[in-house]
């Protein structure tokens, strides 16, 4: 999970929201402009340990995936349940419950479906995304 846990920011990173906007062990939706046009993304936040919201210096994990669910054709991924299957963090679509790997967007039920992902990280209390 090296890309997703990145902590060193480069110039192409843009600020997204405040750390307090994140919901531990769950997701929120955001709007970004990319080279290919606007995108709706889902940001998932996993503080280390299931019960300890990350301290500022604590390692934590952030993931950014497509908010668009290709099976339901609706923008809902951020509202799915976060979990882990076989040790890999995933999100279950709230509509038809397919699982998507947070690390790379791969759908576990269908090899042909993969959500886009973006590098995301924290700079102080600022959530940054590379888009």
């Amino acid at each position: 999970m090296t890309t997703a846990a990145a902590k060193i920011m480069t110039q192409t990173w843009q600020p997204l929201c405040h750390r307090d906007d994140l919901v531990p062990f769950s997701g929120i939706a955001a709007w970004i402009e990319t080279d290919e046009g606007p995108a709706q993304i889902a940001i998932f936040y996993i503080p280390v340990g299931p019960n300890t919201p990350g301290e500022a210096d604590h390692e934590c994990e952030l993931f950014a995936l497509d908010h668009h669910d290709p099976f339901a054709n609706a923008n809902v991924i951020a509202r799915g349940i976060v979990g882990d299957l076989q040790g890999e963090p995933v999100v279950a679509s709230p509509i038809y419950k397919q699982h998507f790997r947070l690390a790379d967007g791969q759908c576990l039920e269908n090899d042909d479906v993969k959500l886009r992902t973006w590098p995301v990280g924290l700079e102080g209390d600022q959530v940054m995304i590379q888009a």
């Binding site: 062990f25 299931p50 349940i81 976060v82 979990g83 882990d84 040790g87 995933v90 279950a92 699982h99």
Partner: peptide
Amino acid sequence: ATHRLGCDICKP
């Protein structure tokens, strides 16, 4: 397990 996050079965 590595993450112990639970899943969409046990959490609800």
